[in-house]
């Protein structure tokens, strides 16, 4: 029996630059349906999963993600998310989710003040989300980051509730999974690399799984996130 394909909708803002990578990973690597959705559109075209891709939407003017949040498509994405739809924000997409209020917190400038572009290691802290169901708690994934503003910050009460509710999905770690300051590429609080909302249907992560979904690219660990999404949607 062959499973039917799920549909990934990849939102394209002016300045998105990982939209094609996300589309390629979904369509050609994972062999699923994928479609680009322009920021002026208000129809998500029956997508099962919305991807807000990386890049520099609206030139990062004002604050990263701040302007993208007001684009027509985002009103639909917010509605979709509030109805339980699956949304993943990668890098700039994570920043857009924060500005849109779909996830708590903000991204500050990296503490080094440098744009960081390299492979990092992520410890899977919560493998029971629909984004990580194909992982196990404690797995270490090798996935690259590429950002200037990835220094996750939120008030103490917010961070405490994220920790208490198991909403921290990924943390920057060493190759053996230990959480150290040296493994933290940007200064994020508690080495946070990815979080999920309380309902479990919206996740943001700074690292780029779509850039690590084929061994030719140095790692295929990012595929686990796509596989998790596909299996979770098929099961629903």
């Amino acid at each position: 029996m062959s499973l039917s394909k799920i549909k990934f909708g990849v939102v394209v803002f002016p300045g998105s630059n990982c939209d094609h990578d996300a589309y390629h990973a979904a369509k050609h690597v994972m062999n699923q349906e994928a479609e680009f959705i322009w920021h002026k559109e208000t129809d998500l075209r029956g997508s099962d999963v919305i991807i807000l891709p990386g890049g520099f939407s609206y030139g990062d003017y004002l604050r990263t993600g701040a302007i993208a949040r007001f684009s027509p498509v985002m009103q639909e994405v917010v509605r979709f998310a509030n109805n339980g739809g699956t949304v993943i924000g990668i890098c700039n997409g994570f920043q857009v989710l924060l500005e849109a209020g779909l996830l708590p917190g903000v991204m500050l400038r990296n503490r080094s003040l440098r744009f960081v572009c390299k492979f990092v290691h992520l410890k899977v802290e919560n493998a029971s989300t629909r984004f990580t169901s194909e992982c196990r708690n404690g797995d270490v994934l090798k996935i690259p980051v590429a950002h200037g503003d990835g220094n996750y910050f939120a008030g103490d009460d917010v961070v405490k509730s994220l920790e208490d509710n198991n909403q921290v999905v990924f943390r920057y770690c060493e190759t053996d999974g230990s959480i150290t300051d040296e493994a933290n590429p940007n200064g994020s609080l508690h080495n946070i690399a990815g979080i999920v909302n309380a309902e479990g249907n919206v996740m943001g992560m700074m690292p780029h799984p779509e850039r690590a979904s084929e061994l030719e690219l140095g790692s295929a660990d990012g595929k686990k996130i796509f596989e998790s999404l596909i299996h979770s949607v098929v099961l629903v």
């Binding site: 004002l62 604050r63 007001f70 500005e99 903000v106 910050f153 939120a154 008030g155």
Partner: peptide, 8 residues
């Protein structure tokens, strides 16, 4: 709503 993000 736009110009400042009250978290930071």
């Amino acid at each position: 709503k736009l110009l400042a993000n009250p978290v930071m």
